[in-house]
Amino acid sequence: MDKDIRQGRAVVLLNEHGKIIEDIDTDQIFHNAHLHITDIAQMGPYAFGNLEGWKDFPKNCGEGDILIAGRNFGAGSSRQQAVDCFTALKVGAIFAPSFSAIYFRNAVNSGFPVLKIHDLEALIAGKGIVTDDVIRFDVRSGRAENVTRGTAFKIEPMSPVQHDIFVAGDLFKYGKRIK
């Protein structure tokens, strides 16, 4: 039960014009120059290593941080490292209006919370979420709360499938439970 409710600090991925960054691709998340790294523990320092304005992210992020990004997050290649680098940094979740299909599959399969957020543009424009706000959310109900501002917003609840895998830990652990 506990696992469903999480809390963390919001990190809103804005560009230099203060706009939410859309179409962040896997090369910006984890550049292909580092694909030889297979040990998850070593992947953290390369997260967003190629995303303009965010190269210091690994140094500045903290455990449980919630990344908030624009639509089509994770476009591009199928590399699992683009998910695993956030696991290595103990990032708590990623919220975006949409994810690329493969990125979403990879994240779900490794039990990493990726959640679709509603009306992100309005939230950002109305300063409903600002970096460093404390966010509490429930992956089951889709209820999310901005603790800092005392306001509420909505995320898409995990589907039963995504939740099953999330609770088990990853796809393989889930597979062992059902057989």
Partner: peptide
């Protein structure tokens, strides 16, 4: 088409999840 993690799971369980 799917990745090798997905397919290993499909071999073992005969199922997969899909949006």
């Amino acid at each position: 088409g799917m990745g090798d993690v997905d397919i290993a799971f499909a071999f073992k369980t005969g199922r997969t999840w899909f949006e």
